[in-house]
């Protein structure tokens, strides 16, 4: 039962070609829930909902085993760059 972090990563990598990807197993190791931060050019021009849908679709197989998937971030490389910069200039935020 459950899905490994690596499986999630490889599916997302192959389907969404992310420039940054962070998958965290938040289930405590049983592979039932993950949180994802993903940066991909494919998100360009897409609403947040559509981006989440893309992530869900990419993990269609895995989703059958996953109980909860939390997409913390689904941004374009440009947005990602901006966010990184603003985080650096304003670390308290």
């Amino acid at each position: 039962m459950g899905v490994s972090k690596e499986q999630v990563e490889s599916s997302l990598n192959s389907k969404l070609n992310p420039s940054h990807l962070e998958v965290i197993d938040i289930s405590g190791g049983c592979g039932a829930s993950f949180s994802v931060e993903i940066v991909s050019e494919q998100f360009e021009g897409k609403r947040l909902l559509e981006r989440h849908r893309m992530v869900n679709a990419a993990l269609e197989e895995e989703m059958k085993e996953i109980h909860a998937l939390s997409v913390k971030k689904a941004v374009t490389p440009e947005q990602w760059k901006k966010q990184q910069e603003s985080n650096q200039s304003n670390p308290a935020a």
Partner: peptide, 25 residues
């Protein structure tokens, strides 16, 4: 809605998203 989880928030007949999306908004 073609969306796998709850909650789901609709605005004017369209799905806006679930918890993650609403939180980030």
């Amino acid at each position: 809605s073609n969306w796998p989880t709850f909650p789901q928030i609709f605005l004017n007949g369209e799905l806006v998203g679930g918890c993650d999306i609403l939180t980030s908004m």
